[in-house]
Nucleic acid binder design. Sequence first.
DNA 1: ACAAAAGTGTTCGTCTTACACCCATGC
DNA 2: GCATGGGTGTAAGACGAACACTTTTGT
Lengths: 237, 237
Amino acid sequence: MPTYPMPLVRIEIALQTIVDGELVTLMVRREQAPYRDRWALPGGVIRVDQDRDLDAGAQRIALERLGITPPYLTQFCAVGSAGREPRAPHDWGLSVVYRALAPAGTIAPVAGKRVAGLRWVQADNPLPASHTAFDHALIVASAVAATRQQTAALEFPRGLIPERFTLGALQRLCEEVLGTPLDKSSFRRKLRDRKLVESIEGAQQRGEAHRPSAIYRLSSGGSIGTTPQDRLETGFA
Amino acid sequence: MPTYPMPLVRIEIALQTIVDGELVTLMVRREQAPYRDRWALPGGVIRVDQDRDLDAGAQRIALERLGITPPYLTQFCAVGSAGREPRAPHDWGLSVVYRALAPAGTIAPVAGKRVAGLRWVQADNPLPASHTAFDHALIVASAVAATRQQTAALEFPRGLIPERFTLGALQRLCEEVLGTPLDKSSFRRKLRDRKLVESIEGAQQRGEAHRPSAIYRLSSGGSIGTTPQDRLETGFA
DNA sequence: ACAAAAGTGTTCGTCTTACACCCATGC
DNA sequence: GCATGGGTGTAAGACGAACACTTTTGT
């Protein structure tokens, strides 16, 4: 059989976290054409000699470009067409987009290889299409919508949530992601009914100017994802 | 910059429809190694000289392999790793999986290029892993779960539903997809409340041995998808 | 008349929402 | 004491499941 020219395969990463009480996504300024000096998702080319699979490639690229190993990395979508990769045959590029989530303040990406600058972009104040590269503005908006939808359904996007937390902190986090206030009583009842969290024996948050709070963690069984990738990984649901 | 060897990029299609009142997925018998003679999703290699984008490639491959142009084709997930493509450098293959849906009886795929045989696989009676290729058994199960979840939420997977239908037929269709009976009154109330369907003026289904029924179509606004691809296409939700 | 499916209403229980209220702590 | 957030209870209402019922056709 003949061998056909292949697309250039890239991985892009939409890293989301909370900064100043708001959901933000990391974008980087491109150092090279196309779209030089415009803002894009951090990403890189897959290396078949280094990456065992797509997930491993995403981890490598996060490390190379941002100097971090995100705790939670999940495949989001793939976009591919002619006209997005001048280095490839027929200008044909394929990007597999990953979504990465990290708890507020736990992650400090630094500009790595071929990255001219970093910037947290607020979910509700996106960059105009004229300052962004490819269709990345659209992808960011879509990734934000996904994170909010998960949060609203209390399918916690694991990575965003610290190991140990108080219920108040968890509620604040959700409110920050969603950008809307939640009812305390309802929030807690849902957590209880669906057994999403479990209290850590004896642990207490003291020292604040108010009643001490119990410390919780996500319960192991809780919040099974419903994306194709989740289903594949868990052996379908 | 150096040019790296690229993965072999393929598109696979999970074509689903209703056969004999059951949700089924099409699989094909492989003519070539690897996994020769085992069952896999129909698919093919992307052609950067022919396919404008991934969607166009999926359409071309459906036509070449199955002789059909599915009315509804939506990206599902991407899987890629070393060890799944002997023809590629480092045995590295990347498959973008599409889900295609067609109303019962509207589609008659035929074995096309490099396809040794076709087979409808029932959702609740899947082929054992020992007879399937790659991770395609897992992907099929995952695609079935996605279709059922959409149906249960009355986010109709457009392609499965004919242009015009009676409410009874629509309910039967949902029951066949889900494999469980539904309550007529509840079903209709939901359709009404959420304005998912609209009746076609004056049209009636006559000639059956019972009361004639009104004819409906999906309302234009109804049932916005929530997959990343849906959001990208509609300019985010 | 009868079967068969269309189409509607009604009841009952569950889940959600919104709000009010007590509790424990640091200052 | 009092401000602050933790933690709980409750009444009103929305929603969904289950079931009974009437209507209209062809045979």
